[in-house]
Simulated assay, not measured.
Amino acid sequence: MWRAPFWLVALATGAKSFADNPILGSEALNRRGLHAARFKLAQRLAWWRRRRLAAAVPAVWRERFDRDGYVEVRDFLPTEIFERLQQSLTSREFDGREQQQGDAITRRVPVGPGLLRNVPELRKMVEDRSLRSLFAYVASTRAEPLYYVQTIVSGHASGAPDPQLELHADTFHPSLKAWLFLTDVTDDQAPLTYVAGSHKLTPARLAWEKARSITIKDSDRLSQRGSLRIRPDELPTLSLPEPTRLAVPSNTLVVIDTCGFHARGSCDRPTVRAEIWAYVRRTPFLPWTGLHLLSWRPLANRRAKWLPSILDRLDRLGLVKQHWRPAGRKRAIDP
């Protein structure tokens, strides 16, 4: 009972796990619309914040996102700048962390002050005003993203099927993930897939969210933890199309709202791809777009490097589980 106040306070945050919070996971409360109400309020607040951020975003990007839930921009950087950036990030070895899910391994190198200082093209990219305005619009907040040099190694490891191959929404409220691909991603190299329009608040989506929340105890583990899975044959019942496979050349920027349904595409051979990856997720029920203390520049540029050490310490104390293990020094394109 002493934890009940914390479970209650979590209702006003981005807490999403039905399994870890008996209030969020309550079948009786969700029958009465608890989860559906949080979903609806989070969506409406996000679009309200986006309207205040819209003026800074190029109209063509804004229109694509509003319609599809993602933006794809090919040849994002000038060719000479991209080639220098690509060479700098794929030819050097960096200390990183990796995590295995099924037969896929994700390896990340945090982007901190040292990397920004040594790779000026990277600093120029993350400070680009048009990029920052697009990120703010999609994330519905001016909070600074976390940046990583990321490698996805598919089909090289033994294990169960990769859970990222299943269509899913990361959480119940809008948030951002973005990729600037350093290598080509062909259709047989596990490309990102996205269900166009699945980021929108519609009566069908709201009804689906409510139905899933009521029967969540019978769902898979990741759905129970708040990342709801959806079968491809369910998409037509929500008036949604088949997923789009974003097979794109290098120097393509892809930005998505992870409240929409997405997945890693399947592949039938071992593959390696490298990218600059960005992530923003903020408490969804705040009415303002700024006032994010961790976005203060001296902190913002260091968060990605500090986070693994913080999680290591919490793991030793038994408070959280650290899933990211040291990977040693490797290049971004190493398998």
Rank of each mutant, 00 (worst) to 15 (best):
A42G: 15
W306G: 15
R44G: 14
P236A: 08
R329C: 01
I276C: 05
Q100E: 08
V73D: 05
A54C: 01
F181L: 13
S140E: 00
K217V: 09
R108M: 07
G260Y: 08
R329F: 00
A59E: 11
L89D: 05
E27S: 14
E166Y: 09
L299M: 06
A169F: 04
E127D: 13
K16Y: 11
S223L: 08
T252H: 04
F76L: 08
I333F: 00
L11D: 02
R74G: 06
R205T: 13
E80G: 10
W208S: 08
G69T: 05
V149C: 05
A274P: 13
P232A: 13
P335Y: 07
L167A: 09
R107H: 09
H262G: 13
L311N: 14
T193A: 15
V111A: 07
F135C: 02
R107W: 12
R302V: 15
E209L: 08
L286R: 15
E242M: 10
T271Y: 02
N30L: 10
R329W: 02
E121D: 12
L167R: 11
P298T: 04
F261T: 11
P236Q: 05
A204G: 06
D312Q: 14
F39M: 07
G14I: 08
A169H: 10
A46T: 00
H199D: 04
Q87T: 12
T215E: 15
V119C: 15
D95S: 14
L8Q: 00
D20K: 14
A247H: 06
D315H: 15
R205L: 14
V111K: 02
R84K: 14
T13L: 07
R64V: 02
A169V: 06
Y148P: 00
D95C: 10
S223N: 14
Q43T: 07
W306R: 09
G159N: 04
D233Q: 14
W324S: 09
E242G: 13
L319H: 10
A139Y: 02
R282K: 13
A332E: 00
A46L: 01
S239T: 11
T252P: 07
N30Y: 07
L146K: 07
S133H: 06
E144Q: 09
W324D: 12
R67T: 03
S219G: 06
V109T: 07
W306Q: 11
D103N: 08
V149K: 01
A46G: 07
T186E: 14
D268I: 03
R132S: 08
D95L: 11
T289M: 06
W288T: 12
P120Y: 09
D268R: 14
R316F: 11
S239V: 06
L176Y: 09
P113D: 11
R282A: 12
A55I: 00
V254H: 02
P161V: 05
Y70S: 01
G112W: 08
L165N: 13
R303W: 10
S88W: 01
T79C: 05
A42W: 08
E80M: 04
R302P: 03
L286H: 12
Q150T: 10
C259I: 12
Q150C: 06
R264V: 12
